[in-house]
Amino acid sequence: MSPSLTVAIPGTLDGLAEAARMAAAFCEEAEVPGRTQRNLLTALDEVLANVINHGLAGAEGTIELTMGRNAGVVAVGVADTARPFNPLQAPVPDTSLPLERRKLGGLGIALVRALTDEVTYERKDGHNHLTLRWRLKTDSSKGEHADK
């Protein structure tokens, strides 16, 4: 069994909330280990917020979310109808500045990079496609219970 999910959500904050709920339910059903699950849900929030706030920037649009798990990998795909926008080209923020000068632009995408094992961007058929992947330990009897 390879659980999978495909849904289309409106590119709004309400749509984001709905996607977060479905992603959390998917993780439970697909038995994604606790640490990977939290990383996935955090990264997904960053990616969707980025599409809604910067990609669509107030315009109407639809976001297609796909999730799948097999023995070794959990993958999340986010496809949107926004203008061509590759978040992986966003400048990396300076995280060493003092409080007064600290800005948050780009931090979300930096987190996505750090919290995933692999992230790729592709512009195809008028859509932005972002794919996030996590490798799972193949020995499921170890390390998952203490982590939960």
Partner: peptide, 17 residues
């Protein structure tokens, strides 16, 4: 707190300032 994203970090930074 289960997890925090950059939206939450923004709130924490605002609070600190």
């Amino acid at each position: 707190v289960d997890y925090i994203s950059s939206a939450g970090l923004r709130v924490m930074l605002t609070l600190a300032k």
